[in-house]
Design a protein around this nucleic acid. Structure first.
Lengths: 205, 205
DNA sequence: GCGCCGAACTTGTCAATGAAAAGTTCGATA
DNA sequence: TATCGAACTTTTCATTGACAAGTTCGGCGC
């Protein structure tokens, strides 16, 4: 009996290729991802992706843009959940950092591509716009924690981003201990409080 | 007139291949490094590296091990320069972080390979030993800053490593501002003081 | 309903790649 | 001086990214 064949037009090939690419990267890392393997897993010929993404770097570009979009959404949700002003701004800032780590762990393939600009067309307007939107959600709330000895909101943003980006990266490449690997969000929440709270006194409960 | 040819035995091919690999990675990133290009730049045939490194992952393994060795040496030097006990331990801890960022910027190719374990044989005893020695220099002095609200030296080490690793990574992939890119060491020294010093009071001068 | 156009594919080809096998050249040693 | 193995070179093969040419349909205008 003939196997049921996919019609000539895939119907949603771009989406399928992005998903397959994320899957391959999750298994082997960005450096070992091949267009042919991505096409195979999507059930099309090796030249099919050209119509949607142009070339390999084009596929990486789409992944990076999607990653920054998802990050911006994740950080936006972490901010908006407390927009009523009734929550300590420092706690909101902390939860944004936790959301960043949650995003990195849940979207490891995207996260690894996003921060390797040599893989993609870094001047892509989609990527630049999405990255800018994500950065706004990282730097924006930094203004709320000025006064903890840190008087420049860009400094607070850079410290926070460095901390959570470094933590996420070290967890993903297996360099931190079992607590951090087993519970990245809980660990970064605890460490973030230590790093950003008044010394010697009660931290945010 | 015949060009002067290299004798059949290169004489120091392993070293030449490591240097050429770092050069290629510096130009194109780890994902685009090819053994054939590395061999060409070393003046040998494409199969010559096999004798020294086995395969492509073997070359990456050697680069990673060398990178962790260099990092350990850099951090050791940052520690030893103040072993006489006359320097504020918090300042030593800060300078170790600065040395980490200096290493990352100066050895960008090695740094990028070191933290991508999917590229190399991560169970390599050379890599594990060198990485362990480097980690000791990162975590060791963390004990000296307990009392700043941070009561666990592993927590201090993880916060510090996350901060400087994240900062170095974000500088290298062009995500931080022009101050950080133009003066990574100065910027991370300043931010490190903010992050680790008593709030509201005089920081380490 | 038909014809047409272009989107969305497939097939075939080529140069470059990693890996492997076989062969060659020397350096070190007995 | 002869031998052995380290340290290469040459050749081959499967896979890859990219490209060109060809084919299949979906959508649209008439």
């Amino acid at each position: 009996m003939a196997t049921p064949e996919r019609p000539y037009h895939h119907g949603n090939l771009a989406r399928a290729l992005l998903d397959a690419a994320a899957e391959v990267i999750g298994e082997m890392g960005p450096a070992q991802m091949s267009l042919r393997e991505v096409a195979r897993r999507s059930g099309v010929s090796n030249a099919a992706p050209v119509h949607h993404f142009g070339d390999k770097a084009g596929l990486f570009t789409a992944l990076a843009a999607e990653g920054f979009e998802r990050l911006a959404d994740t950080l936006s949700a972490a901010t908006d959940g407390s927009a009523d002003g009734q929550v300590d701004p420092a706690e909101v800032f902390l939860e944004i950092g936790v959301a960043y780590v949650r995003f990195a762990v849940a979207n490891r393939a995207h996260f690894e591509v996003m921060f390797r600009p040599e893989l993609y067309h870094r001047e892509s307007s989609d990527v630049l716009a999405a990255a800018s939107r994500a950065a706004q959600h990282l730097y924006g709330p930094a203004a709320d924690v000025i006064g903890d000895g840190i008087t420049d909101d860009r400094d607070a943003g850079t410290i926070a981003w460095s901390l959570v980006h470094g933590f996420a990266t070290l967890v993903l490449n297996g360099n931190l201990d079992t607590e951090a690997s087993a519970d990245p969000e809980g660990t970064v929440r605890r460490l973030g409080r230590l790093a950003f709270s008044p010394k010697g006194g009660a931290a945010v409960p």
